[in-house]
Design a protein around this nucleic acid. Structure first.
Lengths: 148, 148
DNA sequence: TATTGTTATACTCTATAACTATA
DNA sequence: TATAGTTATAGAGTATAACAATA
């Protein structure tokens, strides 16, 4: 937990300096950039980022006001909204990534060899998957609140 | 990072239910309980917990108001304050720990074998130590702010 | 002068509940 | 009825800067 907190502080500082982004904003932007076509449904984004829906709406508004993402109605379901990273969003990310990679290399990878990195990927993925079954997603929390 | 966030959510829920503690309060209390004599200087506590001093003062006030810690002037340096866990604090911790151990076992250790746990301890400790050299402590941040 | 700790203040983030709208 | 998303509101946590006190 200490390692995680410290790494988040390091990355937060860096993305704030280089791209005027907060850590959660950077995570959302990076996740969108990695998604097919740079788009994701709001609910899926909320679940994947461990956010409540209202928390995601808040961050999405900030990112949209900054011109880094755009929200549009989803094609096949008029209830849904699709968030898409904009060209400006990709530009910011391109500006931030070199420093980000440097920071992560220096703070994380530099003290590990390849086999250790591989082992971490395996074990922490297993932990993450396990925790996803134990920690209710944003959607599940909502269902629980409505039902109880 | 995902694993860390999820584990924090899991633990936060559990310590809140079982002991009416927030995650940062639980961390501070546990750290004090582990310290020799149950006492630590405020600055050392802030540095060890990745807090600013003001942030620690805030949490310390909450814990003290709840009767779980007590702050007293330090014996050898009248500028310093020593925080000590109280009997009530130890009681709360004793009430919370069984559920905590269960949660961590279920969410974390259950998916790992002994050698994986050992490898995690080695690698994440190295990462933590490395990050401690890169992320300024509360004291260092303050010096920087004063100097610049 | 430098260090320790607190406090006033402001801001970010997150969540709950209420609301609107569509399936 | 159930799901998707937003917003009003409130609260927790943190940090910066100013302050008081001691080394």
């Amino acid at each position: 937990m200490e390692a995680g907190s410290l790494l988040q502080l390091l990355v937060d500082d860096q993305v704030r300096r280089d791209g005027n982004l907060s850590y959660p904003q950077f995570v959302l932007l990076a996740r969108l950039a990695d998604a097919p076509d740079g788009r994701m449904r709001m609910t899926d984004l909320a679940d994947s980022a461990v956010h409540s829906r209202s928390g995601l709406s808040y961050q999405a508004r900030l990112l949209e006001d900054a011109g880094l993402i755009q929200r549009t109605p989803s094609p096949h379901d008029d209830r849904s909204v699709t968030a898409a990273i904009t060209d400006a969003g990709r530009d910011i990310l391109a500006r931030v990534m070199p420093g980000h990679l440097d920071a992560v290399r220096q703070g994380f990878f530099s003290v590990l060899d390849d086999s250790q990195v591989e082992a971490l990927a395996v074990t922490l993925s297993a932990v993450r998957d396990r925790l996803r079954t134990l920690v209710p997603s944003a959607t599940q929390r909502r269902r629980k609140a409505a039902g109880g």
